[in-house]
């Protein structure tokens, strides 16, 4: 009886502590994450007024526009495509790099990881401007080519430059989670695989890759998410020649005259749909290994 009362009192206190600890975080999430999301969701079903004001009238028109008008839908597909491409390239470059770093003696590992992180010391925009200087028609590469007597190349303001900038910017986000996964990986397992007759290549596919999949998945999500919404790189390096989802959203909200917040919101929601799918896949592939 008393024991029960004590137990109940203990549980009540625990609940109170838990509530006290969770409240600030929850408030933050509600205020700055859930609320804006709800607003965007609501906007996406509203009608745009003649002067860019929001008319509170329910419509599916924004979504219809998005999926039927090629300018929007192409941007949508293009964004998904370049994000997939960026993610795959980061993976192909990042995995060997992470593996190389993890196999170094501990002292070198720290130095190399540090080098991977060094770009973060400079503002992202500044680094993208630096790429402009490198890629421009009279930039570093073309000057070098010219001094060798070779014809210059058009590098800046191409989709290739956009891809380059994205891969450059996102690579560390791929390397770090894979590094963490490889750091936890027991390399004796590769010897065990070799011992059982697996060549290096087969041991990689059968043992190392499956076991470091959580790192690969985390890295891919970390690269994919910012890439699908980006607009800065395609504007500064791609010359805004083609539209990506991010460029359109930014334009619809800020630049077009009149602005079209409802359509912009619908595009943002469509983007979230892709991310949601991605994150679902992420949880599917990782829960088991992470247990």
């Amino acid at each position: 009886m008393t024991l029960n009362a004590l137990e109940r009192e203990r549980q009540r206190r625990e609940r109170r502590t838990l509530a006290a600890l969770l409240t600030p975080g929850l408030l933050w999430l509600i205020l700055f994450f859930a609320l804006p999301l709800v607003i965007i969701l609501v906007y996406s079903f509203m009608t745009n007024g003649p002067r860019g004001n929001i008319v509170w009238q329910f419509t599916l028109g924004n979504y219809v526009d998005l999926f039927t008008r090629s300018i929007y839908f192409n941007a949508y597909l293009r964004s998904i495509w370049i994000s997939v491409l960026t993610t795959v390239i980061c993976l192909v470059l990042g995995y060997p790099l992470a593996l190389f770093i993890v196999r170094q003696p501990p002292r070198w590992r720290t130095v190399l990881l540090f080098l991977v992180l060094i770009p973060f010391w400079t503002n992202f925009l500044v680094r993208i401007y630096a790429w402009q200087i490198i890629l421009a028609n009279n930039g570093l590469i073309n000057s070098a080519l010219r001094s060798l007597g070779l014809p210059p190349l058009t590098l800046l303001n191409t989709e290739g430059a956009t891809l380059l900038g994205l891969v450059y910017g996102e690579l560390p986000f791929m390397v770090l989670p894979i590094y963490a996964a490889l750091d936890r990986f027991d390399f004796t397992l590769m010897e065990a695989a070799a011992d059982l007759g697996a060549s290096k290549r087969r041991a990689f596919w059968r043992v190392m890759l499956p076991m470091t999949m959580p790192g690969v998945a985390a890295g891919s999500v970390l690269v994919f998410i910012p890439t699908i919404g980006q607009f800065v790189v395609s504007e500064l390096l791609g010359g805004a020649k083609v539209d990506y989802l991010g460029n359109l959203i930014q334009r619809l909200f800020l630049r077009s005259n009149p602005p079209n917040w409802p359509l912009g919101s619908a595009m943002a929601m469509a983007m979230m749909l892709v991310l949601l799918a991605l994150i679902l896949i992420y949880f599917r592939t990782t829960t088991e290994e992470d247990r």
Binding site: D186, T188, L189, E191, A192, A193, A194, D195, L196, G197, A198, S199, V207, M211
Partner: peptide
């Protein structure tokens, strides 16, 4: 190692 006619039982077992 993968072409040698030997197999190993590792101290830590090294099971996958």
């Amino acid at each position: 190692p993968h072409r040698r006619p030997v197999n190993t039982v590792f101290q830590s077992y090294a099971l996958f």
